[in-house]
Amino acid sequence: MTGWTAVVPVKPWGLAKSRLDLPGEERMQLARAFSLDVLDVVLAAEHVDRVVVVTAETQLGTIARRAGAHVIVDRPMLARGLLNRAIDAGRQWAQVHAPAAPFVVVPGDLPALTAQLLDDALELLAAQERSFVPDASGMGTTLLAVARPALMTPSYGHRSALLHSDAGFRPTPDVDPRCRRDVDTAADLAQARHLGVGPHTTAALAQMTRVTSDGRRLRVASG
């Protein structure tokens, strides 16, 4: 199925990735890189016709508009429930502009995702009226998809995979691992780096020394 509307909800970069064991500036740079890589992916995906970025991050809004995405200026996501509210803002836009088209949420912290992998995942997700991709832990959610925006009822947050399953979304775990690797911790980042990350994330990581073998600490390169 083609003609998807993709909504990308993004926290202000200075508020994002608080669980990464990094100084604030480095966390912000990685959050920026993640979201720019995801933006590039959804804009390049063949099955995606419309991209909606919902964010209070003004720099991202400017970049997204110039790239051809529609931007909804949102309040800063200071609580988990506001992520679902941001997604609903994107759903409302899609309900007006493409009410019969399939609709997918693509979180802004999937740095290993590629356009081809997103297209492949959308083909699988389209088999069900409501579907989702569990994250790498199996407890959370990365992609969340519906056949039309009126069906979208997001429950991102703690144990969202269970919540989405209980709400009637069908799990679709048999996708490439890069579709499931969101990044909240240094261990997640080490795994994403092993899978291969996008150019913005690669450049941000080049400013840092390394992820240690146990993934617990990322140190910033001096100079």
Rank of each mutant, 00 (worst) to 15 (best):
R180P: 02
I63S: 09
G138W: 04
G198D: 01
A56V: 05
A16Q: 04
A145I: 05
A150R: 12
A186L: 12
P102C: 07
G157Y: 08
P111Y: 13
V38F: 09
S160N: 06
L163Y: 09
F103G: 01
R193M: 15
V7Y: 03
R65Y: 01
T114D: 10
S213G: 12
T172I: 15
D74F: 06
G140R: 12
A115T: 07
P102Y: 11
A98H: 06
L43H: 05
D74M: 11
A69E: 08
M28T: 15
V133Y: 03
A203W: 05
R181L: 08
V211I: 11
R170M: 13
A98I: 01
T5H: 04
T58W: 05
M152G: 12
L60M: 10
G24T: 11
R180D: 01
A204W: 02
T141D: 02
E46A: 15
L20R: 00
A187K: 10
A6E: 00
R193Y: 13
A98E: 10
V96R: 14
A45S: 13
V220N: 03
H97Q: 03
D135C: 01
G168Q: 02
S18L: 13
G24E: 14
S165I: 01
E25G: 06
D184W: 08
D119G: 14
R19N: 04
V53W: 00
A203Y: 01
S213V: 13
A115D: 12
A89G: 11
V197T: 12
W4Y: 12
D74I: 10
D120E: 15
T212E: 07
V146Q: 03
V53T: 08
R65K: 12
G3H: 04
R85P: 01
M77A: 13
A136W: 14
A64Q: 09
R75T: 12
P12F: 01
H164T: 01
D214S: 05
V106M: 11
P102E: 03
A86T: 12
L118Y: 05
A127Y: 11
V48I: 07
V41I: 12
H47W: 07
H97A: 05
M139H: 14
A31R: 00
A221T: 03
Q92D: 14
R85H: 13
Q116D: 15
A192L: 04
E26G: 00
R50Y: 06
D74P: 00
R80G: 14
V71P: 00
V175W: 04
R50S: 13
L78V: 15
A150E: 15
A221P: 01
S18Q: 10
A187C: 08
R80K: 12
A98G: 05
G140N: 13
G215S: 06
H200W: 11
D176E: 03
D174T: 07
V8K: 02
E129H: 08
A44K: 14
P99E: 02
V133C: 02
A98N: 02
